[in-house]
Design a protein around this nucleic acid. Structure first.
Lengths: 112, 112
DNA sequence: CTTTCATATGAATGTACATACATATGATAA
DNA sequence: TTATCATATGTATGTACATTCATATGAAAG
């Protein structure tokens, strides 16, 4: 695109309101966490009850390795926490933001 | 994993509350839309003002083709709408859910 | 009509990432 | 200690998808 017509008015207004790249990137990363079916299922399950890794595997019908990898991602993002209980690791939600975000997604889903 | 210990109590409770696969998949797809930096930027910009494709390109410093592809994805998902104005296509947000979802994401970002 | 600008779209490419496999670590029991 | 269960993690692989390039379509002007 060589000949761009003038948008300076609109663009300058918008540009001021737009957060910096790093922040927008972080924001995208948060939604990316919710953008995977496996992770959504895990988070949704944890909304109901804390669960050990093995229970999540059985619930989703997936391999333990896959679940553990996803749990680590969720933990690094501070969406879930874990505690040891003997041989097991029990995972639970870190806070209520997860519930709010999922519910908001559902709203959009049902209203369109 | 051959020898799975018994989780039937917890699992049965959670299983009843878990939506079906198709619904969870759709839910994930919505968040996937917000999980890309380019799309987040576009949506954020449209929160401030309706914009033509060319303005978005200039604002984000990206190629027109890339922007158009992303706009199509957002339009197919009913997050944005477009209208023709001469040679230009003006894009705007379809509803206020976008604002709510982005704001909620920001909350999580700033509180952790 | 032809030309030019604005946008849309098909195809190719590179990258990010979810899963599988193999293996390591941690914890309890014998 | 060794054996077994539960989980974690490193690596490889396949797939999904964002961007680019090239081109097509749409709209206005000359």
């Amino acid at each position: 695109m060589e000949h761009i017509h003038d948008h300076s008015k609109e663009i300058n207004v918008v540009k001021k309101e737009l957060p910096n790249d790093s922040l927008l990137c972080d924001l995208g990363d948060i939604f990316k966490l919710f953008g995977d079916t496996t992770r959504i299922k895990i988070l949704y399950a944890l909304l109901e009850s804390e669960l050990c890794v093995c229970a999540i595997c059985e619930l989703l019908g997936m391999e333990q390795s896959a679940i553990s990898h996803q749990l680590r991602i969720l933990k690094n993002a501070n969406l879930v926490t874990s505690k040891r209980s003997g041989k097991m690791s029990i995972y639970s939600l870190a806070d209520e933001h997860v519930r709010e975000i999922i519910e908001l997604g559902f709203e959009h889903l049902t209203e369109v």
